[in-house]
C-alpha cells in the first residue's frame, strides 16, 4: 500500500477517535460519580457487555493505529532514524500489534469476570 493510503487511514482513525474518545471521556471520566464509574462493579458490568466489547475493540484498533502512525511520523523526521526507516517501522508495528494482542486478550478475559463482580 502507498504511504499516502496509510496516512489517509490515520486521518480516518483521527475522525473516528474524536467520536469514540469523546464518548469515553464524557461518560467515564466526566459525567456521573467518578468513584462509582471506576468501581469494580461498574467496570465488570461494562466488561461483560458485548456492546462495550465491540466499542473497546474498535477504540483499541483506531487509537493504536493513529497513535503509532503519528509516532512514526515524528520519529522519521529525525534524520538519524529516517536512515533506518524500515527498522523503525518494523519496531513500531511489533509494539503496536503486541499491545493490540494484549488488549484483546484482556478484553476477552474480562468478559468472564461477570460471575465475580
Amino acid at each position: 500500500m502507498k504511504e499516502s493510503r496509510f496516512w489517509f487511514l490515520f486521518l480516518i482513525a483521527g475522525l473516528v477517535l474524536f467520536l469514540l474518545l469523546g464518548y469515553h471521556i464524557v461518560f467515564i471520566h466526566l459525567l456521573g460519580n467518578y468513584e462509582a464509574n471506576i468501581s469494580f462493579q461498574s467496570v465488570a458490568s461494562r466488561s461483560v457487555s458485548p456492546a462495550y466489547a465491540v466499542f473497546y475493540l474498535l477504540f483499541l484498533v483506531f487509537a493504536l493505529y493513529h497513535g503509532f502512525y503519528g509516532l512514526r511520523t515524528i520519529l522519521l523526521e529525525i534524520e538519524a532514524l529516517a536512515r533506518h526507516h524500515r527498522t523503525v517501522t518494523a519496531i513500531l508495528v511489533v509494539l503496536g500489534v503486541g499491545l493490540f494482542v494484549y488488549g484483546t486478550w484482556a478484553l476477552f478475559a474480562a468478559m468472564k469476570i461477570g460471575a465475580v463482580g
Binding site: F40, G67, L71, L99, A106
Partner: peptide, 20 residues
Amino acid sequence: TGLVIVLYLILHIFVTSARV
C-alpha cells in the same frame, strides 16, 4: 499532546487490564 497521549494510551491499556 500527540506524544503525551500515545504514552498515556500504553499505560492505560496495562492499568485498566488489572480487572482481569
